[in-house]
């Protein structure tokens, strides 16, 4: 049987997503049932780039399934520094582990590693290309809070130009169809045309609206997905300072939003959401991070057991 990997967010079909989220739901509601499911299994986490949250989320997921973890402290200063190829590192580690999670700064690294790995491999982020388990996290969060993944008004706010998280999420939602996307960003950080056209080609009934005004767009959204605007993306500091505050979500602005809207953020949050929004029940970003761990548990189980959820 060919080893199954999870490399790109569109690797899974919409029905496979549904099945995975059903499993994640069951784990979320009865975690004790799953606490020993990966007993005797070992997951290796191989992070060539620092990533506290993603790595901890994966490791917590494996531990909560009763499995063990092997962490390579810093692959850059160990095997890779000695000149070992990624393909050789993967084949060696696959001898020790039942599953590999890898983050690598090079685009396409996860695909190459997956081609050499005899055990399932999960992409924990490969450069600017993909971070598919963030997309799983985002979709599962929307489904958990709103009960559906179609027919949504989704406001995406902030840096839409460079954010791979946003690009993957737009594609994954667009594929399901009937979404209204409101793309809220300064001109400098608008969604690239190639992402817009590829998303538009993926599904039917989607509309895309671009705006520079968060205040106006906010009133129509079911989901507001906020991302950080980074200073280094601007040519001069004045432009950055002038725009920065325009895209800050405040408790005042939240009064204009729908009562059932949810506010999401891939974290870390810096200044783009004021702390006084955190107490609003619509602010779900910390719960989003927790659900990210739950959906990673479902993914690990699915890859290790081939989707056979006997306990479910």
């Amino acid at each position: 049987m060919q080893t199954r990997n999870f490399i790109n967010s569109l690797d899974l079909s919409p029905s496979q997503y549904d099945r995975l989220f059903d499993l994640a739901d069951r784990i979320n509601h009865a975690p004790a049932t799953y606490a020993q499911r990966c007993q005797g299994k070992v997951m290796a986490s191989l992070f060539y780039e620092p990533s506290t949250r993603t790595r901890l989320s994966f490791e917590a997921a494996m531990l909560r399934l009763g499995g063990q973890i092997l962490t390579v402290a810093d692959p850059k200063t160990s095997s890779a520094a000695k000149g070992e190829s990624l393909a050789d590192t993967i084949r060696t580690i696959a001898g020790y582990a039942d599953l590999i999670v890898m983050r690598h700064p090079r685009e396409g690294a996860a695909q190459l590693a997956g081609e050499y790995s005899p055990v399932p491999l999960i992409n924990g982020g490969d450069g600017a290309r993909e971070h598919p388990t963030q997309t799983l996290t985002d979709l599962f969060t929307i489904r958990t809070f709103l009960g559906r993944l179609r027919g949504l008004s989704v406001g995406l706010c902030g840096d839409l130009r460079y954010g791979r998280t946003v690009h993957s999420l737009i594609r994954a939602l667009a594929r399901l169809g009937d979404q209204r996307f409101v793309l809220i960003s300064p001109d400098e950080l608008r969604l690239p045309d190639r992402v817009l056209s590829s998303a538009a080609a993926l599904g039917e009934g989607n509309t895309f609206e671009q705006t520079a005004s968060m205040d106006e767009a906010l009133t129509r959204c079911d989901v507001l997905y906020v991302t950080r605007i980074q200073k280094e993306r601007f040519f001069n500091e004045e432009d950055y300072i002038a725009l920065r505050d325009t895209y800050v979500l405040t408790a005042g602005k939240m009064q204009q939003a729908k009562p059932e809207m949810i506010v999401m953020h891939p974290l870390p949050r810096v200044t783009e959401i004021e702390a006084n929004v955190d107490d609003d029940p619509r602010a779900v970003y910390f719960e989003q991070a927790r659900l990210g761990m739950i959906v990673r548990m479902a993914l690990i189980l699915d890859l290790l057991e081939g989707g056979d959820d006997a306990a479910g």
Binding site: S85, L86, A87, H104, R106, E107, G108, A109, L112, Y116
Partner: peptide, 8 residues
């Protein structure tokens, strides 16, 4: 890109 870097 990984192919410009990786020996394999």
């Amino acid at each position: 890109c990984i192919t410009t870097y990786e020996r394999h």
